[in-house]
Amino acid sequence: MNTDYAALPYRVAILTWSPTNKVSRWPMKEYRLTGWPELAPPFHRTAYRRILSDMSHRFVTLPQLADTSGLRRQDVRSFVEMLDARGLLIERESVVTESLFGSLGPLGGWLRRAISSPPQSR
């Protein structure tokens, strides 16, 4: 986080740009569960249990949790904040690229292999 801008609120991610890679990156937090909590009645839904299950297996981001659970991001954020207040989470920073095409790498490799293989092996 850039501390030269004291007027900006805490937790504001400032976009950084490097002329060598020309890709914008911003930090995103990933969370992992350290212990299984007892949930209060508002959190007895399957979606919250799915969040706990995902977080117990690997580090996940808030958008990933919102996608897999079907909950709104605000609901996921408040649930994660509740878990963090109980000391049940490990946080780490993850650098996410802005490019959509960075996620298409496996598809490009498959296409290259499919096109370059001889017809007999297809």
Results as ranks from 00 to 15, higher is better:
H57N: 06
D4H: 03
L15V: 14
L88G: 00
F43R: 03
N21L: 01
D75E: 14
G108I: 11
N2K: 11
R112L: 10
R11H: 15
R50C: 12
A6S: 08
R73G: 12
L52H: 05
L107E: 10
P119W: 04
R92S: 08
Y48V: 10
I51N: 00
L83F: 13
P106H: 02
P42G: 03
M28S: 11
T3D: 07
L15M: 12
P63D: 14
G108D: 09
R11V: 12
E91G: 01
D54T: 04
S78F: 05
D75I: 06
Y48W: 15
W17F: 14
E98Q: 04
W36E: 13
V23K: 05
T46K: 10
S121I: 04
E38W: 06
M55T: 07
R50Q: 13
F59Y: 15
R32F: 02
T46N: 13
G109P: 00
L65E: 07
E38K: 08
K22E: 15
P42R: 06
L65C: 12
I51T: 03
D54M: 08
K22S: 09
L107R: 09
L8H: 04
R25T: 06
A13R: 04
G70K: 04
S24R: 12
R112H: 10
R72Y: 13
G109T: 05
T34R: 08
R32T: 10
